[in-house]
Structure formats: C-alpha cells, structure tokens
C-alpha cells in the first residue's frame, strides 16, 4: 500500500474512498523507477545494445582490417588506438559486442529453461523423481562450470553455437535449485491445495498456479545469469576458445594480453566494455529485486 501513497505524493489530491489497486506489474515498474541504480543499469545496457545494433551502420571500419601501424596510440589515426596487428580497437568494440551479448542472452535463456524445468519437476513431484534429479544437480555442481565449458568447447568445436550451448549446459544447476526450493515452499500452501481439491490437473497446478508465484526470484536469477554468461563467454574467448572468425571483446583481450605493457588501450577498452555490460545487468537485477521483493518495498 505504501507504494500507492508514495506515488500519490507527486501532486495528486488523495481521493476519498477505496482506490483501485494498481496491477502488480505496474506497482513493480513504479518501484523499479525509484531505484536509481536500476535506472542507471538500464540506461548503460540500452546504450551498449544500441551501439552493437546501430554502431556498424555508422562506423564503417572492418574490425579485422589493418588500418594503421601496430600499437598506434588513441588519437586522430584511430580514436581508441590500434592493436598488435594494427587493427582498429574501436571497430573491435563496436562489432565485437554482438557475439558477446548474443551468446550471453541465449546461454542465459538455455540456463533458465533447463533449470526451471528440472526444478519444477523435482520440486512438484518429489519422491523418486526428486531424488534422481537432485543427484543430477549434485553431479553438475562438483564440476567447475567454466572448466567444464572449456572441455566441451575444446572437444566439440569452437563455434558460437557450441559455446552458447556449453555455457547453458554447465550453468543451470543453481537455477534448478532455486526453482525447486520455491516449489517446495509453495506446494504446501492453502491456495495450491484448494486448486488441487477443485480438481485441477498436475499440469495446471504446476504451470498456472505455482509457477507464476515462483517467478519473481527466477526473473532475478535469469537477469544475473546473463551477466555470468557474458563473463563465461569472455573467459572462453580470452583463452582462445571463442569462435576464431568472430570478433568479440574477450577475444580482443586474449589476443593482446601479451602486449598489455606495449599498448594499454588494446586491453583496457574492451575490458571496460565487458565490465560495463555485466555491471549494467547486475544493476538491472538489483532494480528488479527491489521492485519485486515486497520486504524491501517499505524502505522507500
């Protein structure tokens, strides 16, 4: 309720009588807009996405072309300098974002789809299915995710598809645990029992009754999963496991890392791009958290 009061404080006179309650989505959006860091994150993220989408239309330098002498410092010849081969660093950043951000988003989607499916089945049905799936989760959790992803990409080929699937395939266990915990918590509640008593099918109870209520923490986890996937993609590219034919921020750092003392700009700028992307996404995640988590709502 406090949300409505605060929002009314702008200048609207408070009408007497019962007010129509704002829809939960609207209330959450309003709450999100109160979080400064959430807005900052969204703005940075939009700018980065805009740069990757529209940058190549404006900036016509091929990131793989040699445009000037190697290690030309930032200046008139090349705005952000050139790398060890004489390639334009700014072009690398503008064109390299596509691979990094796309892999991050799709890998996070895979993570959440697998995680939510496993967690839903495990938490809803319990019993033998749960025992078996928890074993599978435990199994994946003793394999260091980044190392496992490296092994998968080394064995199955360095293409963007393999990289995306590998990141999704190693990251889902925490999403599964989270979903499972939510289902375990919710399935004993009265409104779930009553819908079951009313003759709802398992499918209906799972997807229509419990899942919507389990969504808030899952949405936050999904946001953070994008950040983690971006870090994984950059780590793989840094180690030389990225797609060799596609420019990406991690690849730029990996290729220039031995020359960091000769030309700081070759490593500082692409790293800043990755840093900003992950930072923006975690700020957006925090903003969602503030918006969705009712315990925090009263703080404002």
């Amino acid at each position: 309720m406090s949300v409505l009061e605060v929002s009314g404080g702008i200048s609207k006179p408070i009408a007497p009588g019962p007010k129509p309650a704002a829809s939960p989505g609207r209330a959450a959006l309003r709450q999100y807009l109160y979080s400064l860091s959430g807005i900052a994150g969204a703005v940075i993220l939009l700018l980065l996405v805009a740069m990757t989408l529209f940058g190549p239309l404006i900036y016509h330098v091929d990131p793989l072309d040699i445009v000037a002498a190697p290690f030309t410092p930032p200046g008139s010849d090349a705005l952000l300098g050139t790398d060890y081969l004489g390639r334009d660093v700014l072009a690398g950043i503008v064109y390299g974002g596509k691979a990094t951000l796309t892999v991050g988003a799709i890998a996070a989607l895979i993570t959440i789809v697998i995680g939510v499916t496993v967690g839903t089945i495990s938490g809803y049905f319990g019993g033998a299915a749960d025992t078996a799936l928890v074993k599978v989760i435990e199994f994946f959790q003793i394999l260091p995710p980044l190392l496992f992803a490296m092994v998968l990409v080394t064995l199955f080929g360095q293409t963007l598809t393999t990289i995306t699937i590998a990141i999704g395939a190693v990251s889902w266990p925490s999403a599964a645990r989270l979903t499972r915990a939510e289902f375990l918590r919710l399935r004993g509640l009265d409104y779930v029992k009553s819908s079951r008593a009313a003759g709802a099918t398992d499918r209906h109870v799972m997807l229509r009754v419990i899942l919507p209520n389990a969504l808030p923490p899952i949405i936050i986890a999904a946001t953070l999963a994008i950040g983690v996937a971006i870090l994984f993609e950059s780590g793989l590219s840094f180690l030389g496991l990225g797609d060799p034919n596609t420019m990406s921020w991690g690849l730029m750092i990996g290729q220039n890392r031995n020359y960091v003392l000769d030309g700081w700009w070759t490593v500082v700028f692409p790293g800043t791009a990755i840093f900003l992307a992950v930072l923006a996404i975690s700020l957006v995640g925090d903003g969602f958290n503030d918006a969705i988590n009712p315990r925090l709502r009263r703080r404002i």
């Binding site: 780590g235 750092i253 790293g271 992950v278 975690s282």
Partner: peptide, 10 residues
Amino acid sequence: LVGYSAPIFW
C-alpha cells in the same frame, strides 16, 4: 559490484 562485474582476467 565492481569486483563482481569485472572479468577476472581483465
């Protein structure tokens, strides 16, 4: 936030 967002190799 910074420690979490910056890639470790960077």
